[in-house]
């Protein structure tokens, strides 16, 4: 960039701030407003255009069966997006594509506006800031709760670092806070394999939070939880809204209702309905629930 352009950008930024009477740093905001004098860094997600996830016409076939059929979806920064759909609608396949487990036959998938997800491996995608919770709670059964969270903490994850790695005080604080958040504060030394199903779900969510991801993909996070645990999970997710972007895939309509109606009400939450590998309907929960085609394929059954 030439100095003239930089100066020009700085000038326009100042003018814009004066005109719209803003004081905070708008380059970081992720709103619809254009950004000024900002450098896009490779491998760091750029969300200045307002979207954190763009999925465009993704098609995946397994032996002729189209699991995803030209699926398009976009999720905005800080959004809590619920995705519903009958079994086999392609919800898990969609997560597999976004997290790099499955490579699609065609289509595009971008994280922010600069990271092409289809060119990266699972671990690289996780490193860039996408965390994923599996349908079946997946924790390290033989390790303690503490160690599970320790491994998930965001640090240098290369071999030569982990051989000599020591926990830093700030990591320890973060661990402590996370354990409190997931209601496992007294269970640090407990072997993860001995936790109840719901606690394992929470531990996995806690591990995701330790990764400090920008986008969380949660595949049926309340499956097998008691009503009380479900409620507390909804609370937890609502508290994350705004700080992280969340995509929640769920069957439990009551839980979806809690998510959509709780939290920051002024933000209209969008619910996406998947069917046979593509988007059937998108809109507010009420709109979706009254959509005839949705009733036909999913809710009416």
């Amino acid at each position: 960039m030439t100095p003239e352009l930089l100066e020009d950008g700085a000038k326009r930024l100042a003018e814009y701030k004066a005109k719209h009477n803003v004081t905070e740093d708008i380059a970081q905001s992720g709103g619809q407003a254009a950004s000024f004098a900002r450098v896009v860094q490779p491998n760091i997600v750029d969300v200045s255009a307002g979207g954190i996830l763009y999925v465009d016409e993704i098609t995946v076939s397994f032996d002729g069966f189209r699991a995803l059929n030209k699926l398009s979806l976009d999720v905005r920064v800080g959004e809590l997006r619920c995705i519903i759909g009958p079994n086999g609608a392609g919800k898990t396949t969609m997560m597999d594509v976004i997290t790099g487990k499955t490579k699609p036959d065609s289509g595009k998938a971008f994280f922010g506006s600069n990271i092409d997800l289809l060119r990266l491996r699972e671990s690289e995608i996780a490193e860039r800031g996408i965390g994923r919770k599996f349908q079946k709670p997946t924790v390290f059964e033989q390790l303690s709760v503490f160690e599970n969270l320790e491994l998930a903490a965001k640090t240098d994850r290369r071999v030569r670092h982990t051989i000599f790695a020591k926990l830093t005080p700030s990591e320890l604080d973060q661990l402590h806070a996370t354990m409190k958040l997931i209601h496992l504060a007294g269970d640090g030394a407990r072997v993860a394999g001995t936790l109840s199903h719901g606690q394992k779900q929470w531990l996995e969510i806690g591990m995701l939070l330790m990764q400090n991801p920008k986008l969380l993909l949660l595949d049926e996070p309340v499956a097998g939880m008691t009503d009380e645990e479900t409620e507390r999970t909804a609370e937890l997710f609502l508290s994350l809204e705004g700080k992280h972007s969340l995509v929640v895939v769920e069957h439990d309509m009551k839980f979806i209702g809690e998510l959509v109606n709780g939290g920051q009400r002024e933000k209209k939450k969008i619910v996406t309905v998947l069917h046979e590998g593509s988007v059937l309907a998108e809109g507010s929960l009420a709109d979706v629930q009254s959509n005839e085609r949705v009733i036909e394929v999913y809710l009416g059954r």
């Binding site: 491996r121 699972e122 671990s123 996780a126 965390g131 998930a152 994850r157 996995e204």
Partner: peptide
């Protein structure tokens, strides 16, 4: 889980 946590 290790892969999706970001370890290669």
């Amino acid at each position: 889980r290790v892969l999706f946590t970001g370890y290669n």
